[in-house]
Design a protein around this nucleic acid. Structure first.
Lengths: 329, 329
DNA sequence: TTGTAGGCGTTATCAG
DNA sequence: CTGATAACGCCTACAA
């Protein structure tokens, strides 16, 4: 019943069929030396006819390039589909350059990195959601492998960084809030307890900078997201307009606000950090000013940056901060 | 600055340090022949001291086992964090058995499978979200590699299947709806247009079976999820209680219902298919009867089934359907 | 219980 | 422009 698993054709088989030496087949494939048009043709025909694919193990063993990029994903991840947006975009973009993505869960920590690096499964790494100082950086660094982090730790010798410009985001939010004549900005999602996260820290820095001297009151909310609307009510002065924003836990907050009708209340201004998928959820949300966190762009940039590090030999590390953008309704 | 990338230690190095032959090191690692306690000790010390990890390329080349499982993920994926629950659990469980997960995006289709299989990168596959008949099955079958699908296609020669028992789910929902004296069940998320999906088809089958002869009116909703509450209103007879359920698009529906206050309305019964993460979103949701789709269990079972196929040589394919469970509030 | 040696399928360095 | 040939690091039959 099951297909007899016959041996996969090797470059030797291709060579025989094309009437050339085995090494010539290799050169046609790698392009690392000039080949006459005639023999290239014959070799390519043989390849097609046999359905030949170079054996990955052999290639990796010999060349020390596995064609695999390790992706360290955070886990568990409470937030909605956000993570998948990154992973999908990273996988797609990698394939454009001939690389595959191997998952390394954060749970495995430094040991996971170590394993995947020492065994030579991965020839490069993308790290997501690093803490401001992260134990996983050490094994990466001493592996000497090129790597890119999505998320900007405090100090970073060696790897490239691609991330949203969270500091700019903070300034953008404050500007909008002031333009909308709000006297108060409620930052929900308990940012005060999340300063250890580099994105939160940078965002808060931007907010505080831009708000300084403007009289805008910044409140770091704490407590269950579900009760956030009540807290927003209580803290407002008479006739004062309140703005709300969070860089995390956006969906639950919108949910809670929708249930109380606050999304339609002109006394509140809600700004969401999210892709444009939210409009499909409820018509109410079209009224919410939104910022595109540009997750797909960031993912693609991360891959391309990694490919650059892999190709150009002595290529130096770089930091690329992507501007958040207002999504026009 | 950057660490000089010194050559990784080989089993040869370990052998020298331990004062044994290279093959002995290999035997200690694979356990494929008895080793005296004394030499095993020495070898293991040497391994630890050098931080040795067997080279993946060499091992794969020689043994034809790469230690990598290919995971074909659907993409793009509109639904919320669901997919990540599967992927995370699969990655974790695989690691318990010494396997890594390589992503293959559905976008690549049959060619992706072909590539990853012929090059020998993956020694087994997990396929998610297959259609009732799927083009990607063919290359998998003729690769002869063991595979497991999460999701049950119509016909399936060769691979194992692990999935939620969607037919039973349909019957469970109908039973509950009848017990709650609803005269009408509104299935939202446009299931009528999704019969091509094997889960939807099986669910609807179960619903129809169980509802037959009971007088329960089944309506397949269509149109934007956001307007679903209005449609639910309009179709109800006088004094009639309406139940609502969807196996897809649950979060948006709950969102829309919350905004209209319907979650607290005793004339409506909303049943959600979801993990228990929803309660953190809003207190309102604790009142919604919920079914646990058991994604983590399904993921783990899929991995264990695959490992079984890999280990036992002539192991036959199996179908495992996991029972949905009511989550008690 | 342990050692020796051949080969897995490539890449890349020699020659020609 | 092309052919032989030597590794790459490990597994495992064959010897001892």
């Amino acid at each position: 019943m099951s297909a007899t698993r016959r041996r996969a054709p090797t470059s030797q088989d291709v060579a025989r069929l094309a009437g050339v030496s085995q090494s010539t087949v290799s050169y046609v494939l790698t392009g690392s030396r000039p080949i006459s048009e005639a023999t290239r043709q014959r070799v390519e025909e043989a390849i097609a006819k046999l359905g030949y694919h170079p054996n990955s193990g052999a290639r990796t063993l010999r060349s020390r390039r596995s064609g695999v990029i390790g992706l360290m994903v955070p886990e568990p991840y409470a937030d909605d589909g956000v993570l998948m947006q990154f992973i999908g975009a990273i996988a797609r973009e990698s394939q454009r350059f001939g690389y595959d993505i191997l998952l390394v869960t954060a749970q495995e920590g430094a040991r996971g990195i170590h394993r995947v690096v020492r065994t030579g499964v991965c020839e490069a790494l993308i790290l997501m959601e690093l803490g401001r100082r992260d134990e996983r950086v050490a094994p990466v660094l001493d592996s000497g492998l090129p790597f890119v982090t999505i998320g900007k730790p405090d100090e970073f010798p060696g790897g490239s960084v691609v991330d949203l410009d969270f500091e700019l985001l903070g300034r953008m939010v404050v500007d909008r809030v002031l333009a909308e004549s709000c006297g108060r900005l409620l930052l929900f999602g308990a940012p005060g307890t999340k300063r250890h996260r580099n994105d939160v820290a940078r965002f808060l820095g931007g907010v505080e900078d831009q708000a300084a001297g403007t009289g805008l009151r910044i409140e770091l909310d704490a407590g269950p997201v579900a009760d956030m609307p009540e807290r927003a009510w209580d803290g407002a002065g008479p006739g004062e307009r309140t703005a709300m924003f969070g860089i995390t836990g956006v969906a639950p907050a919108l949910f809670a606000l929708a249930a109380t009708g606050a999304l339609a209340d002109p006394d509140r201004l809600m700004i969401a950090l999210t892709g444009d998928d939210l409009t499909s959820v409820s018509p109410l949300l079209t009224a919410v000013p939104r910022i595109d966190p540009r997750r797909v762009e960031i993912s693609e940039l991360a891959v391309r940056e990694l490919v650059r590090l892999l190709r150009e030999d002595g290529a130096g590390a770089r930091t690329t901060l992507v501007e958040p953008r207002w999504v026009e309704g």
